[in-house]
Design a protein around this nucleic acid. Structure first.
Length: 592
RNA sequence: GGUCGCGUAGCUCAGUUGGAUAGAGCAACAGCCUUCUAAGCUGUGGGUCAUAGGUUCGAAUCCUAUCGCGAUCACCA
């Protein structure tokens, strides 16, 4: 697109003010935006900020500028003034021309190439239990964001980090050794991550039992927690792992492999992927040298007991430990190391971490600690802090068994989609495979849209019934609009062209205005790292189109010109729906 | 207790960065299929924008205080 209409109008307004009132004007005083629905016009200028320059009433100022624009700008064919609002009417030919230019462009909305490389980390699972609802929000956000950033013209590298070591996985290993009887995913038919998760739960059962026994024998709770045999074995397992004990490493590798097989299956079902994987087992020793380097530079400090700290009290935060007194690393130390490693690997301009907002403090500390070291990449670190998913009865708690499993959820939404689709009798003429594919597209679409339509920064409530709803503000609503257009287009014959003398009705123009906004929305979503803007846009576009569709016949339009125009418009809408939904990771069917 | 975040219709969420009569969906009610797919469209009811002050032509939006909810503040990850 050559130049946005808002820019053209803004510049023209600036010129008008200059000519009419003889004064230059700061261009950001000019607010030009699409006219709100209940008023007549296409774009609106708010004139209140101009009163100091015009020295006239709001109405008179708006009249002045409106008159000037109508006279000097071909684009503006009319205007009206309500209080301090100047509503401008844009020539139909502009919109028709726009439709002709962009309507068949499958890349419509794509941003210019920016020469910015972004590393985007998301998911970050532990390898001792299966993925849950929280990971789903994380993965959908991360994957969608990578699409949006890429579409806006950036280079994006999707990375995952596996927390594959530590006491948690050792717990699963010990419980499996003691009670598993050699059970494998193959022998049990269980998905690998679920199998390992089962033994993680098993560990906790045994542990609790042992604590109770010890307490019954007269030990204190605290003492019992430390001395429970199975806990001691898990800790011994961790020591052996760190010492490189072959047998331990083999078991660890095997159980992790089971988990990965399970995760890959879930990723694939959900339609997300990664370009590069990091493993904590390979990075957990990194960062130590950086801390020592900081100590040498004098930006960190050492306490009497030998522990090393960073002082962030000047930034309103606390002092944080970087190396324990025994010289070992903490969580933060590792993250320093992985940040450096990632920069060495990719030399990215920005590094985005999709991590829940419970870690806000940690990421503030991480960024500031790297800044103290003078790392050039510290500035490019951005924590996409998303809100936690809550259930109608509160937070998910594994102890209370309220964790919503990712695989179960996916299966459930597909099942619901199937039930609903069959009930509506929509699959006549589908063979079994394409029917299954349709259920999958609709079910997954529903859950993805449900989670992505909410502002990522805000916590969200997961209501199981609403998440599989197929009506209203949902993916199926948008998908349905697309399918209906496609089936209509399939019935149309020949190529259709836009007649630039066609006269638009209000519903047609409203759809065009929506389409025209798409590139801006993409850019805003990328800028704000907010996929919900895309979701709401896709919904609104479908909504506007449906209104048009209901009121105005396309294939049976009164005139040939109307039919051709409406077909072009419909095809454009289908195109943009498909494009925007793809950014959310949602497919759109041609029939449903 | 310190820090950060949130509070908009019965419920779930928007609100274009300070602009017009605060909008959608769900739920409820009333209409629209012999005409391109009714997973749709139209309409009705539903609001002390947590509360109280302040800033200005104008505040759901910015500032202050209060109330309520949540997260976080480990030599855990």
């Amino acid at each position: 697109m050559a130049q946005g209409i808002e820019t053209i109008l803004r510049e023209a307004c600036q010129e008008a003010v200059q000519t009419l009132y003889g004064q230059a004007l700061d261009s950001n005083l000019l607010q030009v935006s699409p006219t709100s629905k209940e008023h007549d016009g296409d774009y609106t200028l708010v004139v209140f900020p101009l009163l100091k320059v015009s020295r006239k009433s709001p109405e008179a100022t708006a009249q002045d500028i409106g008159g000037y624009l109508q006279e000097h700008l071909e684009l503006v064919t009319g205007y009206n003034v309500i209080k301090g609002f100047l509503n401008l009417k844009i020539a139909d030919s502009f919109w028709l021309h726009f439709l002709e230019e962009e309507g068949k462009n499958p890349q419509y909305g794509r941003g210019e190439k920016k020469d910015i490389k972004i590393a985007l980390e998301y998911c970050g699972p532990n390898t001792n239990k299966p993925l849950h609802l929280g990971h789903i929000r994380n993965m959908l956000l991360g994957y969608s964001l990578s699409n949006i950033l890429e579409f806006d013209g950036n280079e994006v590298i999707k990375v995952n980090i596996y927390n594959d070591r530590g006491i948690a996985i050792c717990k699963s290993m010990v419980a499996w050794q003691q009670t598993g009887n050699g059970e494998t995913p193959h022998s049990s038919g269980m998905k690998g991550d679920h199998l390992v998760g089962k033994y993680y739960v098993e560990f906790d059962k045994i542990y609790k039992k042992q604590i109770a026994e010890l307490v019954a024998q007269g030990q204190s709770q605290e003492e019992a927690e430390k001395k429970a045999p199975i806990m001691q074995e898990a800790q011994e397992m961790l020591r052996k792992w760190e010492a490189g004990d072959t047998e331990t490493l083999q078991l660890w590798q095997q159980m992790n492999d089971w988990v990965y097989m399970g995760f890959f299956e879930t990723y694939e079902k959900l339609g997300v992927n990664f370009d590069y994987n990091y493993y904590e087992s390979k990075t957990y020793l990194l960062g130590r040298d950086m801390v020592l380097e900081g100590l040498e530079k004098g930006v960190y400090f050492k306490k009497e007991d030998g522990s090393i700290w960073v002082d962030l009290t000047d930034k309103g935060l606390d002092q944080k430990v970087l190396l324990r007194s025994d010289g070992t690393s903490v969580y933060l130390t590792q993250d320093l190391g992985t940040a450096q490693l990632r920069y060495d690997d990719f030399h990215m301009d920005r590094s985005v971490y999709v991590v829940a907002n419970e870690q806000d403090y940690h990421f503030k500390v991480l960024k500031l600690t790297l800044e103290k070291l003078g790392k050039v990449y510290a500035d490019g670190i951005y924590h996409l802090s998303y809100g936690m998913v809550e259930l109608p009865h509160g937070r998910m708690k594994s102890r209370e068994g309220t964790v919503v499993d990712a695989d179960d959820l996916i299966e459930e939404v597909i099942q619901t989609a199937e039930n609903e689709t069959r009930k509506l009798g929509k699959i006549d003429g589908f063979d079994l495979d394409s029917a299954k594919e349709l259920f999958r597209i609709i079910g997954l679409g529903a859950i993805k849209f449900f989670m992505l339509r909410v502002d990522p920064k805000k916590k969200m409530l997961f209501n199981p019934e609403e998440s599989v709803d197929l009506h209203g503000q949902t993916a199926p609503f948008v998908q349905y609009t697309h399918a209906r257009i496609k089936s209509m287009l399939a019935k149309a014959t020949g190529a259709f062209a836009v007649d630039e003398t066609y006269t638009l009705n209000a519903d047609e123009k409203s759809v065009l205005l929506n389409l025209y906004q798409y590139p801006n929305i993409v850019h805003d979503a990328a800028q704000e790292m907010n996929p919900s803007l895309i979701a709401m846009y896709a919904y609104n576009l479908a909504k506007e189109y449906n209104k048009f569709y209901q009121e105005h016949p396309v294939l049976k339009a009164d005139t040939e010109a109307a039919m051709q125009f409406r077909l072009s418009l419909s095809a454009f809408v289908a195109n943009v729906i498909q494009s925007s939904m793809r950014l959310l990771g949602i497919q759109v069917p041609d029939r449903m």
